[in-house]
Every structure is written in C-alpha cells, then in structure tokens.
Amino acid sequence: MPEAILEVKDLHFSYEAGKETLKGISFSVPKGSYACVIGHNGSGKSTLAKCIMGLNSTFKGDVLLFGEKLSPSSVYRLRSRIGIVFQNPDNQFVGSTVADDIAFGLENTQVPTEQMEEIIHSFAKQVGMEDFLEHEPQMLSGGQKQRVAISGVLAMKPSLIIFDEATAMLDPKGKKEIYALVERMRQENPDLTLLSITHDVEEAANADQVIVINDGNIVYSGTPKEVFSHEKELKEISLHVPFFFALKRRLEDRGLEIPEDVDSLPLLEDYLCR
C-alpha cells in the first residue's frame, strides 16, 4: 500500500451545538490516486471539503495531510502543498488577466520575477490557455476560467489537488473540458493525488476510489464498481449511477455476459459491436 497523502480519522463537525453535520468520517487517499467524494446537497460533503482545507478549524477528530496533523499551526505549511479548485469560477479569479491570475500564487510563494513569465507560459499551455494570457475574466467562459484556476494551482506544484465542486457551475462543454484535463493531468503526473468533491456521479465513474456520503456518514466506499453495484440503495439517497454502470447492469439483467475487463463506456461499445 503506497503512503497515504490524505487521511481522515473519525471526523466530527457541527455548525450548531447538538446537530452534527459530519458524524465520524474516516477514509484515506493513497498517493497518486484519484478519489471522489459524492453526495447530494446537504449531505455534508462541502463541510468535509472545508475541514480538509483547514477553513473549518473547529472539527473533532484528525485530518492528516502527508502524514502530518492539520492544526492551526501547520495549516499554512500544509496548504502550500495542496491546491484547491473551487466551485465558482469568478470568485477564485484574483488577477485582472489570465497571466496575472496564474502569477498570483507564484507571487505568494516568492518565485523570482524573472522566472515567472516562463512558468506562466508553460502552465497556461498545459491547460490550453496560452493564447488567452492577456484576456480579462469577463471575456472568458466558465470552463476557461476553471482551466485558468487549475493552471494557477498546477503552477504551485502541489502534491494533492482538491476539486471542490469544480464543475458544478459549468455547462456540459465546460465539464467535458475539465474532465479531459483532469484525465490528462493524471497521465502526465502519476504522483499527483486528486480528491474531487462532487455531486456529479459521471465524474466518479473514472475515479480509483469512490466515497459516498449521506447525512454526515460514509455510506459506501470502494472502487466505482463496488459502489455503483448498489444502484437501488444509492437511488434512495438521491444519487443515480453513472451511465456506464447503469447500462452494464441492464444488459446483465437481460442475460448478457460482460467480461470483467470491460470497464469503460468505449470498451463496452467495442465489445457490443463485436
């Protein structure tokens, strides 16, 4: 088992006394993996995200990042190694142009001015925004703004990137762009650990690990295949199953045998057409 980048142990959190939003959450995310936390609105997943980022500091239990306990004294040090992409594309765009926004994080970590231009160019290129460096945020689409946010995060060379509902406010095209980008990031950098907090189950279909949260508790946790085999139970907590798993189940119900190694939509398509 590779080292755990993020470990959450028996996490409790309440906004008001006597009413717990998180009721003892425990999970760990190994290095280089892609974990998805899913849950419908009000399930506590955003609260969990805030706890991990150190924005909710009054939780009970432990959050270990890179093996170190998250506390008010370690939060700044630990945060420099994690990158966070938030939900609202506008509210995380700090600079007045794309280049300025990518530079913002670099300025904070005191990267020398002479190196900035090159870093900005290379990371803008990674997300396909190199032609938009002088553009102002109001000239960009939501998906483009999120890509800028991702490149700003990547430029900080984090070991862990947290996506806090990063695609929730995007149109389908923007969502696709971000999914493709995340997939590419994983291929290019196998050591990068990703944690996505989302209510979009399609995103979870590609994850290594899926954690389903409902009412402050972990309901299911495991590989997408394991988790999404509980179709009926998931429906009860207002979550549906990714299209691939739903389709596979329907086909199997009708007596079709689908081999184990067919584990994505394109593969299934190939298999059926054969």
Binding site: M53, L55, Y76, I84, V94, A99, G105, E107, N108
Partner: peptide, 17 residues
C-alpha cells in the same frame, strides 16, 4: 478563501509579476 488557499498572506513578503 480562495486567496488564502493559494497562499496569500498580507503580512508576508511577495514577489511581483
């Protein structure tokens, strides 16, 4: 929140783009 998470600390020294 976003600025804090990207390491902005008003008291700290920053370089300039």
């Amino acid at each position: 929140n976003a600025m804090e998470c990207r390491g902005y600390d008003p008291q700290a020294k920053r370089t300039r783009y």
